[in-house]
Structure formats: C-alpha cells, structure tokens
Design a binder for these strands. Structure first.
Lengths: 200, 200, 200, 200
DNA sequence: AATGAATGAGCATTCATTCAT
DNA sequence: TATGAATGAATGCTCATTCAT
C-alpha cells in the first residue's frame, strides 16, 4: 500500500472511531464519516468493505490503543502494595476521562447484536504478569481483600465504567452530587476502601 | 380515551420497549414497531408524537415498572442484617436477568445524546426509608463496611449492571468463565465479601 | 337542518375560505381546517363530501359575497360620469385591499386543474343595468374612451387584479415604489387617464 | 461537473418547470418529477437540496429564459413609434401563449408564502435602454398617452397577464367570447386604443 | 349531530452501496 | 488511488378519508 493510501485509511479509521463512539452503529452515516475525514466515500468501501467492517475495525483499534494500566502505574503498584487499589482505580478513571471513546465503543458493541466482538483482545494483554505480581504482593501484605484477581479487576472495572457510562441517568437518580469533583473524590475513596481489609 | 384506544396505546408502548431496548433509538424503525404491535403506524404519532416521544415514554415506563428491590427482599434485609449485601445484590442481579429491558434502555439512553432523561425518576423512590433502615441496622451490627449508603448502593448497582451490560466484551476479556453458573456464583460471592467487614 | 348544524357548517366554510385562500387547494389540510374551525373533522365530510367539494363551496361563497361595485359607487357614477373610471377603479382596488380572499381564491382556482369553476357566477350579476347605464352616460359625455363595456371592465379588472396578485414579483421587477402609498396613487392616476379621452 | 451530471441536472430542471408550473409547489411530487425526468430521485436532492430549492431554481430559470420583448420587436418599435403599443402587447400576448410556464410560475410564486422571490431578476434587464428609447420616441410623436414608462409597461403587463391567468374564471364571467380568436382580436384592439392619444 | 379511533396510500428525504471515469 | 455520479430500498412522518360509538 502506498503512503497516500495509508494516510487515507488512517484518517478514515480515526474519524470512524470518533463518530461511531459518539453516535453508535446505527446513528452513524458513512457519508458523515467520509465528509468529516475529508475522504471520498468510496475509499471506505475499498478499505473496510462495509459499515460493519469499519465499525469492527474501529472497535478493535480502540482496544489495541488502550492499555488498561500505564507502565508507570504498574511499576509504582509493585513498589507500593498498600496503594494498589487506589493507583489502579485512579488510572482507570483517568483513562475513561481522557479517552471516552473506549467505554462508549464498548457500550455500543455490547448493545448491538449486529456487531461481532471477535476482534476484541484482552486489554490486559501483555500486562498480565505485572498485574499479577503487584496483586500477589498486595495480598500477601494484607493490603487487599482475599479475593481472586478476576473479581478484583472486575470490581474496579465495574465501578469506573458504571460511573462514566451511566452519568446521564445517575445524575437523575443520585441526588447527592457524585459528579462534582468533591463528590467524586469522596465516592472513590469509599469504593477504594471496599477493596481493602478493614480491621473494623 | 376509549377502551380500544387504551389497548392500542398500550400495545404500542409494550412493543416499543421491546424493540427499542433491543436495537436502540437509531436502530429501531417505527414501521417495525407498528408491524410488531399489529397497529397502524399513524397511531404511534397520534399517541406519542414522534419517535423521540415514543422512546422517552418507553424509557419512563421501564423506570416506573422497575422497583430496585422487592418488598420481600427489603423486609428480609431488615430482619437479617448479616445478609443485607447478599440479598440486595441477588435481587438486583435477578432483576437484570428477568428484565433485561432495564439495563438496555438505561444504556441506550446514556449513550444517545438526543435522548432526554428528564422523565427518569429515582428508581428507589418510595423505598428509601426501608433501604436506609436496613442499611443502618446492618452497619450498626458491623455487617457492612463503614461507607455511605450512596457509595454502597452505587457499588452494588455498578457490579450488577456491569456484569450484564458488558457481557459480550467481558466474555472475550475474562478467560475465566464468569458467565457460567458456577463462575458467576463464585464471582458474586467474592464481590459480596467486598462489602463486608473482614476480620483478617 | 338544525340550528347547531347550520352554525357548524358555517364555521367550516368561513374557516375554509380563510385557509384555502391562504394556502391553496394542495397546501391546505382538512385537519387544519377542522382544528381552526373548532369542529370535528368528520363534519366536513358530512357537509361537503370531500376536499374538492369544500373548496368549490368556498370559491362559490367568495364569489357570492363579492359585489364588484358597491351600490353607492354605482349611484355616484351615474351622477358623476366624469369620475366613472376613477370611482370604479378605486372601488375595485379597495375591494382587493379589504377582501384579499377574492383574488387569491380566483388565482388558485385558475391555476388548479382539479378545480371546477362551474359554480362561479358573474360577479356583476344584478348590477349589469346600473353599470351599463353609467357607462353609457359617461361615453355619451365623452368622459371615457370609445370602447366596449367588456373591454372597459376587463381593463379595470386587469390592473387592479394584477397590482394585488403579483405584488411579490412586481416588487422585484419595478424598482420604482409602486407599493408605497404615493407610488400607488401616482400609478393609479396614470392608469385612470388611460381610460379617458385625451385632448392632446 | 461531468457531462453526464450536467445532463441529469438539466433534465431535472426542465421537468421541474413543467410540473411545478402545472401543479404548483404543494401539488407537485418529487417522485413525479423524478419519474417524468427519468432520473433517480436522489439526484434531485444532490443537485437542488430540497423541494424548495428546486422550485426556486425553476422559478429563476423561467425568469432568465424569458425576455419580455424580442429584439426584433424592439427594433421595429423604434422604427415605427405609431405601432409601439400594438407591437409590445402582441409580443407579450404571444409570449404567454407560447410559454405558459411563465405566468403560471409567476402566479404560484406570488400565492405561495413559502416561496422566496429573491432569485427573480428584472425581466427587462438589458432591454431597458431600447424600451426607454422606443417609448420616448413614441411619446414625442404623440403616439402614446402622456404617462410614465412604468405605468405604461404595468398596463401592458396587466392586461396580458390577466387575460391568460384568469381564463378559467373569466370564461364564466364574460359571456362575450373574449377567448375566441375574433373576440380576443377585438378586445386587444380596444385595449391598445387605451394607450393611444385619442383626438376624440 | 357529533366525535374519537383507525387506516392505507403517500411524501419529502436519507442512506448504504455500486458504477464509471 | 481517487472521485463524482447513480441507485433502490428505506425511513420518519402526513393526509384524506372511513369506521364505530
């Protein structure tokens, strides 16, 4: 593939991620992506076959791009087992703050029966070792509850995803301001405490 | 409104909930709803103004229909503070199992920028007292961690919602079978333990 | 027909005239008329059969209601033959000013191939004698050009109709302000002079 | 724009003029135009945005195409001032005979409140000089009444437009046959005489 | 006489996709 | 590789008209 073609293909994908994540599969128009990318509509079909192909490519790319935790965080987590939960949750929350494409694409993909998730890889791919190591150390030292890594990660993912993905409705449900900076801070602290061993 | 009209309107709403929750706002066709409901398309516009009106009515209805917790559960929870978390989480998981419209509509509504969530009420409406009472007792007795009710409920909602709403992608991510009966059981147990005070 | 029915029928017709004249046959909605008249849609079909029937009834009514010239004007015209043209044209212009339904219904009816004009009567019906008499006197006295009454009336109708019916486009065409009070006055004076014998 | 596209666009416009002028804005269906033009409906939206855009384009085109008077007529009018009125009126009448799109589009545009007439140009554009010259000569020579050019043109336009545009209703109103060849001839002669200076 | 409910054909407009250059 | 042109099946919504009470 030529340089120019690569650039075109990349522009398409980047734009597709943005628009699909905003509007979902059905809410997105191929014309819209082509226009926003400044690319001829036909190129989309040349490179991605059809709308579904483009969506799946966008979904896969988002997953590839996202590392659940940053290297730095993991290193720090190994060094400071007592802060493990706090570090990981903060990292995850920040990820969602900075890169909302992720939870949105995730949500669309899960809702849409036409979308195949085959292309999705484990986001922890390549980080498993480090995570396991950090978690093992923390548990040894009694810094986290005695649960499986799966449950631990599941819990952290759940609260950070839920916090972001249900903002609109939760704003109506919870009168207390969990979406103010202070409210969020407080909520997170209490959630973090769940994962820790409490002496009572 | 005549009897016949009521029936028509109701048939439309029921069908709308089913199809909207399945396919979302953009993925749903008014023609499809009319056909599935066995109703003349025009009636939808007569009763619900337009597609958005129908979606919002469907969303509101789902929220009204759902009680976060059953009466029975709450009563039991007051009597058995040590089982509070287990009872509530089970109830919530069952709700999502039996009535998937709920989390799906919730998810669509949160993703879709065109949908207003004004009509959404606090699902705990009317149950606040009981929940507070049960929670207060459980905390007094040292059966739950020392966190706010908001954080407690948030945590429970988060894990049950996340478990259901991200099934497709989580199946790819977690190689361990959290969607097998046994895997689910185990995961839930460990999650419940998070909310409890640990002696360790 | 009962009193109530008469009132309903009349309300429908009045409203129909207003809305049809504004929007034409195709631009008008039966629903719109029913709503504006505060009447049940079904009544329209009961009394006027269908949309075409209602339009034709409205057209006929407008023609019946309009007298090309007022009694007073005609009497004065007989007395003042030298002012005949001025009196008649002024009268006609005023009619169009005050009752725009007339030229608009006329225009719609002429444009629309679906509308039959059978029901239209000669608007001069009943005034023929007086007009003829006034015109004959004026011609005898050399106050009007030596043309047929038909041509005379045609000319007067033409300019007054044209002035009103082509306002939108004439405003673009004629830069000189024939739609300002002064411009109109001047134009009318000059047009009146056309009908008069000039010594020059 | 490619050759093919130009042809398509032109076919659409020509057909639109025909059908719009026949049925007006509301009476015309985009489907009908597409079918009659043998063109895919979507092309209409590609080239003219929407129904209104197409109507305005049709209106503008009709105005551009029409020259109020032919070159030949104007030249002859300068040479034969005594025939000015006759030449111009005949020309105008012929225009309406041959090109009924003109008065019909004019009439629809004036009636329809949704249609903007911005795109309409002065139909006399480019002919002003010649007309003024011919008119000035005729007036000098005492061949036309002593009125403004505006009033003169207005009068000629009025009678020719009125004759054509109100045919359906005038046929009912004037029992004398102004729409027979002989009747028309006679009417025109008398109308022409209005514009001329009469010795009495 | 009056009205609410229902209908089916229609209507402007859009969209994913393919064709031709 | 790139692009403008074309297509046919939708898609949300409306309308004249009829039915049932």
């Amino acid at each position: 593939m030529q340089e120019r073609a690569k650039a075109t293909k990349s522009k398409i994908l980047k734009t597709a991620i943005r628009i699909f994540s905003e509007n979902g599969f059905y809410g997105t128009r191929i014309d819209g992506i082509a226009a926003a990318a400044g690319v001829n509509k036909q190129r989309i079909y040349a490179y991605y076959n059809n709308k579904e192909g483009l969506f799946e490519a966008a979904l896969a790319y988002v997953f590839e791009e996202v590392s659940l935790f940053s290297e730095k965080t993991l290193e720090q987590a190994v060094r400071e087992p007592e802060n493990l939960t706090s570090l990981l949750l903060t990292d995850f929350m920040n990820l969602h703050d900075r890169y909302p494409y992720f939870w949105r694409m995730l949500a669309w993909a899960n809702l849409n029966k036409d979308v195949r998730a085959d292309s999705i890889l484990d986001i922890r791919a390549g980080q498993d070792r480090m995570i396991e190591k950090a978690f093992a150390r923390a548990r040894e030292k009694g810094c986290v509850k005695d649960i499986s890594l799966t449950a631990y990660i599941f819990g952290l993912m759940a609260v950070s995803f839920f916090y972001h993905a249900n903002r609109k409705t939760l704003s109506m449900t919870f009168s207390s301001g969990i979406y103010t900076p202070a409210g969020r801070e407080q909520l997170m602290e209490q959630l973090i405490s769940l994962f820790q061993v409490s002496s009572r």
